[in-house]
Write a protein that binds this DNA or RNA. Sequence first.
DNA 1: CATCGATGTCGACAATGTAGACGTTGAAAC
DNA 2: GTTTCAACGTCTACATTGTCGACATCGATG
Lengths: 111, 111
Amino acid sequence: MTTPILGELEQVVLLAILRLEDTAFALSVIREIDAQAGRRVSRGTLYKTIERLADKGLVEWTVEDGPPERGGHPRRRFRVSAFGVSALRASRDTLHRLWHGLDDVLGRKRP
Amino acid sequence: MTTPILGELEQVVLLAILRLEDTAFALSVIREIDAQAGRRVSRGTLYKTIERLADKGLVEWTVEDGPPERGGHPRRRFRVSAFGVSALRASRDTLHRLWHGLDDVLGRKRP
DNA sequence: CATCGATGTCGACAATGTAGACGTTGAAAC
DNA sequence: GTTTCAACGTCTACATTGTCGACATCGATG
């Protein structure tokens, strides 16, 4: 099966989860997106996006108890599936191909 | 005004137009997208996307006569506006920030 | 003249992006 | 001990993007 095309926010969310490794909880993802992309997304937006990513098999999650200082109430820990990683790779490769040769116009990013 | 977030196809279309420089006519753009991204978009899709990009001031076009062997009937030549270039840059910079440090997972692209 | 390829326009529908209201729970502040 | 607060999560509703495919034109070509 071919990897699906990632919507622009889908891609951002997947990357944020990946970056957080084992600390990818909802609010941390939101903060990571804000930190790295300067973009504020509401919880509703995040959960909807993750729900859709999960439907496509790109992310998975486990419910686990939170830290004791928070009464240990459960929360979801997200992770990107292997399929999700493939999709990210495909998306990145495509962009690299499209960007290639446009340094003069866009300005070189990694000199 | 801050640059708008580009939809994923919007970004691809802008990049394709940029790549074609002075030969960015509708069908060439479609072929360029197919060639670089392995993606087939219909004319309807392309025109709709370009229409939206134009509404946001990211692309512009001029109508000009086609080559004589085609009876010189007119067609549109597209180009990305300066604002469009800024938006592409912003989008690319954001992705670079998000990708940064994930080489182990995604696989290095430019060794 | 029947077809063909390059052009464009339109209408309709699917998928994605986006909030904000509602509801819970335990901890911290009075 | 009750108001307040931050960290969860769910749901509904709507805005924006993505995606055809049908319709229509105009020369060129068979």
